[in-house]
């Protein structure tokens, strides 16, 4: 198990970081909350990167980690992490943008035959929608989509009504589908870890600057220990994500467990970072003005997307016990 980045991977990570920090200022993220088209001009920076979805999962994760650190809005995650692998598994050429409709009425991310599809990511911003059904998938153009209001305006979710009878389903092996969804779960975890790390960094910075009782609040042990635990969780989750990505890239038998571990670890790390991050910021953290709540919103929304930590623990237990 070798975690050292190759030169190419290092370059990819550095490139992603400068791309996202330069092109995705939080001002645009905020503007996007009121008018999603505010982020449209940014999309041109990412179109050439969507093919990362077809390559090694480690590379996609390196890229998404940086996207998560700036809360990048838009259809990149849906297209690269969700849509392209499923389209490839169906043996079709991908459109420029796409998303996948998985969860039915129950909201669980498992193949369903339901007409209603919930939590479809960026459904109104893509050219194609792949609707997963038991044993197969339907590829369609855009479908009428009802926005679902969530905590997090930076990732837009929709509910769809799928005209089931009108399209023939292409066959899709259930294991292949599971593989695609698990890969996407790891990718989402990478993005989430990027968000959690950003919260940690912001909070450590703040703790060094903010002075009370004539000293930086970061010198108080109650604050230090919270930050130490937060950092440990973020490090642990990051390692879990890249281990899982390596396991997928190697086709290792441990990859199914590793995917659940990655999402659960990332979700827990992000929740802790968000909660303690706001607390350590005090009053300023409670304001709309301060950016921190944008990160907390994303952190919790991503924790609940594609299975919460609890859900992944349940699934993991299935692999450990049964």
């Amino acid at each position: 198990m070798d975690f050292a980045l190759t030169d190419d991977q290092q370059l990819l990570s550095d490139t992603a970081r400068s791309l996202f920090t330069n092109e995705y200022p939080l001002s645009v993220v905020r503007a996007h909350a009121d008018d999603p088209s505010a982020a449209d001009p940014l999309w041109k920076h990412l179109t050439e990167w969507v093919a990362l979805g077809d390559g090694p999962l480690v590379d996609l994760c390196l890229f998404l980690e940086e996207a998560g650190a700036v809360l990048a809005p838009g259809p990149f995650f849906a297209t690269a992490a969700l849509y392209r692998p499923v389209v490839a598994a169906l043996g079709r050429e991908p459109a420029a943008t796409g998303t996948v409709a998985v969860a039915g009425e129950s909201g669980e991310w498992v193949a369903s035959a339901d007409r209603v599809r919930r939590f479809v990511v960026e459904a109104d911003a893509v050219e194609e929608v792949v609707v997963v059904v038991p044993g197969g998938a339907i590829i369609t153009g855009p479908l009428p989509a009802r926005p679902v209001e969530t905590l997090d305006s930076t990732r837009r979710l929709f509910e769809l009504d799928v005209p089931m009878g009108e399209h023939a389903a292409l066959p899709l092996d259930p294991d292949a589908l599971t593989g695609c969804l698990e890969r996407a779960t790891v990718a989402l975890s990478a993005e989430l870890v990027g968000t959690a790390r950003r919260i940690l960094d912001m909070t450590v910075e703040y703790a060094k600057e903010r002075v009370q009782f004539d000293r930086p609040i970061g010198s108080f042990q109650a604050v230090q220990h919270k930050l130490a635990d937060m950092a440990l969780d973020v490090e642990r989750a990051t390692a879990a994500v890249y281990y899982a990505a390596m396991a997928f890239d190697a086709g290792d038998a441990d990859r199914h467990r590793a995917a659940h571990v990655a999402k659960a670890a990332a979700g827990r790390a992000a929740r802790r970072a968000a909660k303690d991050g706001i607390q350590i910021h005090g009053g300023i953290g409670y304001t709309w003005e301060h950016d921190l709540h944008l990160f907390m919103r994303r952190a919790y929304a991503s924790e609940f997307l594609m299975g919460s930590s609890d859900w992944h623990h349940e699934r993991l237990a299935g692999l450990l016990f049964d």
Binding site: F3, E235, A239, A240, A258, L320
Partner: peptide, 22 residues
């Protein structure tokens, strides 16, 4: 089941973290 899975998650992710730090 969930509690034990969470313990597995922590152990597995620590194993990865050790290698990553290394």
């Amino acid at each position: 089941r969930r509690e034990i899975a969470a313990l597995y998650e922590e152990a597995a992710s620590l194993w990865a973290l050790g290698h990553k730090g290394f």
